[in-house]
Design a protein around this nucleic acid. Structure first.
Lengths: 334, 334
DNA sequence: TTGAAAGCGCTAACAG
DNA sequence: CTGTTAGCGCTTTCAA
């Protein structure tokens, strides 16, 4: 380590007190313009940057929010993060990203760390594995502002930003029914979250409204991202003529299976995905998707969080529903 | 906020001193098994979790490493992060992810924050915009352990983990030449980094070795991720019969253009991408790619960083080269 | 408008 | 093995 410049160094060098320096650096109204400039210039010149640990320790706030997401590497969460950062930047807050890797255990560890005031607020989307919310409840009892988005804990009362999941499931199903599908399957992860549940309920309801009863065999569970076997066996012999894919990672194995088994989309099987991504426009056939307002979801979640941070007493627990839209492409063409 | 339990509360409640509690919680050998258990049990019961700011302030280390990457949402960086986390977890370190969003300015701001000891070490891949390294040099002068990966500052001596970029450019080009291509173009971002430069040099060299001179028109620059116009105009009238795509985000616009302009791959244009991703296996045609050892790169970079953190004196500045491999698919078939 | 002093919660010498 | 003590670098009263 080279130069160990801190507030004291500056104070001594300029013949002022540390509190003056501190106030100047924080642009306090108590300090004269002249002194401020003198101190700022010095700080600038010598590349001073404040020790965040000291200031957080003393002031009890970290100017930092934690974002807990299951994974990166998919277009949805990438866009959400951008939305979050755009809001946080305006407020002068830092954004720390924590990955649960879809693991319940990891998620618990992460939330545990937040107990100690490492962050001023939390934005969170649950891991697929998560099916109990004790860790979430413990956190909320501490009164740390928290907003959930996308994958939210259904049984917990909290601020949430979600999409119109039930409707989406319903409309997606209707879309396929309108295209003439009779036997629609639903492709999903073995572990799945509340929002997934809502979507499935929409699926079930849409079927019910058309006098179709949902059979267990219509739900195709996949263990990992490359579970081609389950998909292959589920789709054989033209058992289904419509398919809803509930996750971005499941699109690749699906297309692989269809190619190998010579199942032609959309003639034999119409496919709709719950996630939009750029390459959907160049797949063969191009893929009908549901486009979520990911960036906006990030913005909204962050704004909601800052509302809580700024006035912690009135914890409103509002649930904000954003609308997603179906983008029709070749994979569901009649 | 509810319970404000800290080390003092515990000390008082158990009739011991704060240092005993501190040592017990850090599993120091100085404390008897019995006392340890008593303290741990108490801490557990009352949900104590240490204040990271206080401990970092005092101990001068944060047990945290910062990872600066240009973006999330692509398979490469997602895998790198997983590699990093797997190593960091074993060492009991936290991983904070910072996004530069390919912006030079943002990158400078981030590095500036690191000046103050927020993290014990840094792993970094440069933004596309970055073409000066003053901010990097300033950081390294401070002696903060830093390892660069993938996109590294070519003019700076530092620890780096890279792929065999020159070779890759060379082999990719040879691959296309061997398939009979005569006029090969190279698709890249307008802003680009050192590693990209190396790859382009490999490209140039491979052409030179075949007595072909590289013309400026063979380099197709794209401004953003959806710059279909440049691509369209560059590819018209069968000007090229081979193409190297240097970034994952450029694959979608390329396929869009080829579809629209009815340029058939690989008959009229053979395509090779410098990035592998799952959907490459189901595109029409399937895409020949170069698969980078992303997870391994993350692991290696993190291990190298911890070596530096653990013995800061011997800053070795090693450059580790990992090997990537070409995965041949339909898009370059003869 | 500035300064003195106290202390955030924890760790690390050093004593005992 | 346990306790005492002195800060880490900063913010924040309160006094000047």
């Amino acid at each position: 380590m080279k130069s160990k410049i801190n507030i004291q160094t500056i104070a001594k060098a300029l013949g002022v007190s540390t509190s003056t320096v501190s106030k100047a650096l924080n642009d306090s109204y108590e300090i004269s313009q002249e002194t401020k400039e003198r101190i700022l210039a010095f700080a600038q010149q010598y590349g001073y940057s404040p020790n965040p640990y000291a200031s957080s320790l003393r002031s009890k706030k970290s100017k930092t929010i934690g974002v807990v997401i299951p994974e990166v590497g998919n277009s949805f969460f990438a866009a959400v993060i951008k939305g979050i950062e755009s809001v946080a930047r305006k407020k002068g807050y830092h954004v720390l990203i924590y990955l649960s890797n879809e693991s319940f255990a990891k998620e618990q560890i992460i939330l545990n760390e937040f107990q100690s005031g490492r962050v001023d607020g939390i934005l969170m989307s649950l891991a697929l594995e998560t099916n109990a919310f004790g860790h979430v409840e413990k956190l909320m009892e501490k009164g740390i502002p928290t907003v959930f988005f996308d994958r939210t804990p259904y049984s917990i009362i909290a601020s949430k930003v979600v999409t119109n999941d039930f409707e989406l499931g319903y409309h997606a199903t209707q879309h396929l029914l309108n295209k003439g599908c009779q036997k629609i399957a639903y492709l999903l992860h073995r572990h799945h979250q509340g929002h997934s549940h809502q979507r499935m309920e929409g699926f079930r309801q849409a079927l019910a409204d058309t006098q179709i009863q949902l059979l267990p065999s219509q739900l195709i569970y996949c263990d990992s991202n490359v579970d081609n076997i389950s998909i292959t066996s589920a789709l054989q012999q033209g058992r289904f003529d419509g398919l809803i894919v509930s996750a971005e990672e499941l699109v690749t194995p699906l297309y692989q299976v269809c190619k190998k088994q010579q199942i032609s989309i959309p003639q034999q099987l119409k496919v709709l995905s719950f996630c939009d991504f750029p390459l959907a426009t160049v797949l063969t056939p191009t893929l009908t998707t549901i486009k979520h307002p990911a960036f906006q979801m990030g913005e909204t979640a962050a704004s909601t969080l800052f509302k809580q941070i700024d006035k912690p007493q009135g914890l409103t627990n509002e649930v904000i529903v954003l609308r997603s839209e179906i983008i029709e492409r070749e994979s569901t063409q009649g």
